[in-house]
């Protein structure tokens, strides 16, 4: 497995409306919509670019430093 990026997207599943906007804009195909309920990034693919957070209409995504 490759090295993980220092930052990554974190989704607040309570706020997420599962619209799929984030998955559509993610340049690395890292966002998945889990069973039509909430979005979840695939950690290995997420580069923390923040494109998803910029487009999310529900403001459910934050880009954070990986812990």
């Amino acid at each position: 497995m490759g090295k993980l990026s220092p930052r990554h997207a974190v989704v607040d599943s309570n706020m997420c409306v599962a619209c799929g906007t984030c998955a559509d804009v993610c340049p690395t195909g890292a966002m998945e919509i889990v069973s039509g309920v909430f979005a979840k990034p695939i950690e290995e693919k997420c580069v923390g670019c923040g494109m998803c957070a910029k487009e999310c209409p529900a403001s459910a995504i934050r880009v954070e430093v990986r812990s």
Binding site: V17, C19, G36, P57
Partner: peptide, 24 residues
Amino acid sequence: YKPRSWCVFCPMGTLTQTICKAKY
């Protein structure tokens, strides 16, 4: 607001997410 803001309170979107939650 953001381009797809309607999708936050779209009745069809809310209904389908509710159905998906029930099945999840």
